[in-house]
Amino acid sequence: MSVPESTAASVRRVRTFVSTTARPTTERERERRRIAIMCLPFFALATVAGFVPLAMLVRMSVAADAVWIEGWSLDAWRTLLTEPTYRRVAWNTVWFVGLATIVSVVLGVAVAHALERYDLPFERAVVAAVSFPIALPGIIVAILVIAMLGRQGLVTNAIAAVTGTSAIDLASATAITGLFLGYVYSLVPRATMVLRGTYAEVNTQAEEAARSLGASRWETFYHVTLPEIRPGIAAATILTFRSGLAIFGTVLLLQSHHVVTLQIQREISVGTYRPDVAAAIGLVYVVFIVAFTFVGLRFVRTDTVAI
C-alpha cells in the first residue's frame, strides 16, 4: 500500500472511531464513550494548565526575544551547555537531594519498622507527628528551622548557654546544615508514609519463623524483612528524591545552597532577567524528573510513588 493510501486509511479509521464513540450503537462503543466522557474533564484541565504551558516553555527557550516570544535562537541552550555555573548547580542539586533522600529513607525505614512491628505507646500521636510535616509548605519549614537553629533559635541558645560560646557563632539555620535539616524535615514523613504501606503488606510469619529458628534481630531484618520491603524502599527513594528536587520555599528563604529551583528564580529576578534560560532550565528539570520517574516505575507499582 502506498503512503497516501495508508494515511487515508488511518484517517478513515480514526474518523470511524471518533464517530462511533460520539454516536455509539453497540454496548462496547457505549462503554468507550463513557470512558471518554469520564476522562475528558481531567484532560481539559491538563491541557489548559499543563500541556499548553509546557509547550510555551519550549517556545520560550528557543525565542530570540523571550519577553515578547519572537524570533528563534538557541542562545539559552548554548548558555546552559557552556557556562560552568549551570553544571555546578546541577551537581549541587543532585548530591544534596541525593544525600537528603538516603538519610530520609533510612530514617523512614526505622520509623515504619517501629510503627508496624512494635507496640508503641501513643501510636496515633506518633502517626500524627510523622504525617504532620507533609502538609507544611517549604516556607514554613524554613521558618521552623530558623526558630530552632537561627540566632535567636531555641537549640542555638541552649547550646550557647551550655558551652558558653556566642549564639551568633553557633547559629546554623542559614548554613548548609540547617538547609539539610529542612530538607530531611520535609522528606522523612513522605518516605515513612510509603514504607508504612509496604510494611503493612509484608507477611510477618516468615520473620517469626526466622526468629524462632535462632536468627538474631539483625539477621532476621537483613535476610527476611529487607528483601520483602525492597519495593517499598525503591518507591520511597523515587518519591523522596522527586519531592526533594521540587523543594523551593525552604531554599528560597535560607539561601545557603544553590539548587536548581533557586537558579530558576534567579533567572527571572530583576537584574538578571533571562526568561529563556529559566525556561531551558525548567525543561531540563522536568525532563529529568519525568525520565527518573519512568525509569523508577519499571521497578515499582505506580500508586506507591504517587504523592
Binding site: 491538563a46 504551558p53 516553555l57 521540587a246 523551593f248 522536568v286 524528573i289 520517574t293
Partner: peptide, 20 residues
Amino acid sequence: TLAIVPLVPGVVLGLAFVQT
C-alpha cells in the same frame, strides 16, 4: 501515571503559566 504522579514541579509550572 499521568493522573496520580505530579510530574511538573510547581516552580516550573508557575514560570510557564505566567508566560502562557
